[in-house]
Simulated scan of single mutants.
Amino acid sequence: MAKTQLNVRVDEATADAARERALQRGVSVNRYIEELVLKDAGEVGQTFVEAAADFMKQYERVFAEEFGREPETLPGPPPGPERRPSP
């Protein structure tokens, strides 16, 4: 994968902490920062998926009533011909 340069400004204490943590992990500061960003992005994605699943579970009955299906059959997409037109 091609790399690009990203310049950031942080206070000296933050820079020292990043260097120390990278050293403890046995990686470069670049790799340490990259891992932090990737981890953060993954957590955000996971949080979204969990929230979406929780939403669907909470509103399962509403969707079932709207599309005329029982909750246990909801995982698949609603069939085209049976869908009601939008108001």
Rank of each mutant, 00 (worst) to 15 (best):
A41G: 05
L23G: 12
T4N: 07
V27I: 10
L38G: 06
S28M: 09
E66R: 08
P71L: 02
R84W: 02
T73D: 08
P79D: 06
I33R: 07
G76Y: 04
N30W: 01
E60Y: 05
S28G: 13
Q5N: 12
V29D: 07
E72I: 00
P79V: 01
A51E: 12
V44E: 13
E82D: 11
F48R: 14
A64N: 02
R25A: 09
V62G: 00
V29L: 07
G45R: 13
N7A: 12
D16L: 13
R25F: 03
A13L: 09
R69N: 00
E35A: 10
D40E: 12
A13T: 13
L74K: 04
Y32P: 06
E65N: 04
R19V: 08
L38R: 15
Y59R: 12
A51Q: 14
V49D: 10
V62D: 05
A51M: 12
E65S: 02
A52V: 09
V62H: 05
L23R: 15
Y32R: 06
E70N: 00
F63W: 02
E60V: 05
V8L: 13
T47P: 01
A22M: 04
E70A: 03
R84P: 00
V62A: 07
L38E: 14
R9A: 13
V8A: 15
A41L: 11
F55L: 11
T73S: 09
E50L: 13
A13D: 14
R9Q: 11
M56D: 15
R21E: 10
I33D: 07
Y32E: 13
N7E: 12
E34K: 05
R69C: 00
T73P: 04
G45M: 07
G26K: 03
G26R: 05
D40R: 13
P77C: 01
E35V: 06
G68P: 01
T14Q: 11
E66P: 01
V49I: 10
Q24F: 09
R84I: 03
E82C: 00
Q58C: 04
E50P: 01
T47E: 11
Y32N: 07
I33M: 11
E20A: 12
A15C: 03
L38N: 14
R84H: 01
Q58F: 06
F48M: 12
E34F: 10
E66N: 07
V37L: 10
L38A: 11
P78I: 03
R83S: 00
Q5F: 08
R84N: 01
E70H: 04
G80D: 10
F67Q: 02
G45D: 09
A51Y: 06
E50F: 06
P75K: 05
E43L: 14
G26Q: 07
R25Q: 10
K39Q: 15
G26E: 10
V8I: 15
L36T: 07
A64P: 03
T73A: 06
V27D: 05
I33T: 10
D11T: 02
E70C: 01
E12L: 04
R84F: 01
A22L: 02
A18L: 14
A53C: 03
G76K: 08
T73R: 02
V62Y: 02
L38K: 12
K3A: 11
V37D: 03
E50C: 04
F55C: 05
G45I: 03
E35R: 09
E34N: 09
E35M: 09
